[in-house]
Structure formats: structure tokens, C-alpha cells
């Protein structure tokens, strides 16, 4: 049954992974990290990506057509945030839990070696198993 560290190590097995972390999008805290961070600072990266994740999670414009307020907030209406830049990809995957948690997985992929579509599917799977076992 995977914990935070096992889940992060699994992301490192994806082709092109530079680094990954589990981040709280309200406080900006990195609960766990593996590999490298852009600029070398995991904590600063977590705080910055948390801001981005929070805007996405709270945005009514980015919510499903039914609106963000339809279900319980245990199920995140927004699932992923994907950023592409000239040399890498950033994937943020929200983690749904029954209890109060506001976390996402952040995967940083090398653009030449990484496969964005595959990584997105695998990251969703890793996020599910982190909580469900």
C-alpha cells in the first residue's frame, strides 16, 4: 500500500521525470518531495504552484459546466493543471480525499524525454492509489 514516499518514487519511474512533490494548495506546504525542483528550491516551488492550483480549484470559469458548487467539495471539480514551456512540462493533479485535505501532486517532466499524455494518465492513477491504497 503506497504512502507519500512510495508514490513520489513511482513518479520518478516515468520517462523524463525531473522531480515531483505532494503540495497543499491552501498553505503552500510541500508534504513530500523527490528529485529536483526548478531553481533548486522545493519549498519556493511548492508555494508558487500552490497559488496556481488554488486559482484553478476555485475558478468558476474553469469548473465543469454544472458549476463548481454542484457536488461536495470532496470531489475536486478541476482534475489537472498542465503547463508547457520550452523545455519542460508541469502537471498538477488534484488528490480527492474524504477527509479535509487540499493537496495535489506536482510532476515536472523533461520535454524531450517525457510523454505528456502518458504521464497524465499515470499521475492520475498514482494520485488515486495514494488515497485508496
Amino acid at each position: 500500500m503506497p504512502g507519500i514516499d512510495e508514490s513520489l518514487l513511482e513518479t520518478m519511474r516515468l520517462p523524463g521525470t525531473r522531480g515531483a512533490s505532494v503540495v497543499d494548495w491552501i498553505s503552500g506546504l510541500a508534504l513530500g518531495t523527490v528529485g529536483e525542483a526548478p531553481g533548486g528550491d522545493m519549498e519556493a516551488t511548492a508555494a508558487e504552484t500552490a497559488e496556481l492550483a488554488r486559482f484553478a480549484a476555485e475558478s468558476s470559469a474553469l469548473a465543469p459546466a454544472g458549476g463548481a458548487g454542484t457536488g461536495t467539495d470532496k470531489e475536486q471539480p478541476v482534475q489537472d493543471v498542465i503547463i508547457t514551456n520550452t523545455d519542460s512540462y508541469h502537471l498538477l493533479r488534484f488528490v480527492s480525499t474524504d477527509f479535509d485535505s487540499t493537496v495535489f501532486l506536482h510532476l515536472w517532466l523533461d520535454r524531450d524525454e517525457g510523454n505528456l499524455a502518458l504521464a497524465r494518465i499515470r499521475l492520475a492513477d498514482i494520485a488515486d492509489r495514494l488515497v485508496l491504497g
Partner: peptide
Amino acid sequence: LSAGALELCHLGALF
């Protein structure tokens, strides 16, 4: 409870 769920919830309570 899964190990991951326990860790997430416990770290939440701890911090």
C-alpha cells in the same frame, strides 16, 4: 485506511 490517506490526514493535523 490507506497508508497515504493516513499520512496526508496526519500531516494535516500535525502542521
